[in-house]
Amino acid sequence: RAAQGRTYGNLGNTYYLLGNFRDAVASHEQRLLIAKEFGDRSAERRAYCNLGNACIFLGEFERAAEHYRRALQIARQLKDLAVEAQACYSLGNTYTLMQDFERAIDYHLKHLIIAQDLNDRIGEGRACWSLGNAHTALGNHDQAMHFAEKHLEISKETGDRS
């Protein structure tokens, strides 16, 4: 049964990389089921994350957000800060796709704070970029400028010319 769980996970990932998102979802749902049977929280978190990603490419953003929220919940329980940051970043981007910019800002700020805690300058730069865009969408031009300047500063530091 444990091997079946891992195999469903691998199958889901392969379908995903082939662009077959429907079968990817079906496989990761099986993987999730088996992870729950075993009480394997890490595998459960991975399945939610993979499910969220596949839903993005199916254009099912609300469903993607649900999966990412579960992944975030587990990441917090497991006290895995890097994974928590990743889930917040995914949620920020998903809410941007849904044009819910206030919620997007909430999650991108959470991502920013963790990136700063972890001294992850690349993550911090991405958070600032995202926050600048979300504030621009809301017409908060002063805030957008603040984050654009921070993004520029960090990009120079990390040598990101693009």
Partner: peptide, 24 residues
């Protein structure tokens, strides 16, 4: 959707996401 896809930071995220899997 076409409108929001033009948010460059999201577009970049999706490009990265397309190659990203949580490996067993």
């Amino acid at each position: 959707r076409i409108h929001t896809i033009q948010v460059d930071s999201v577009q970049r995220w999706m490009e990265d996401l397309r190659q990203m899997t949580e490996v067993e």
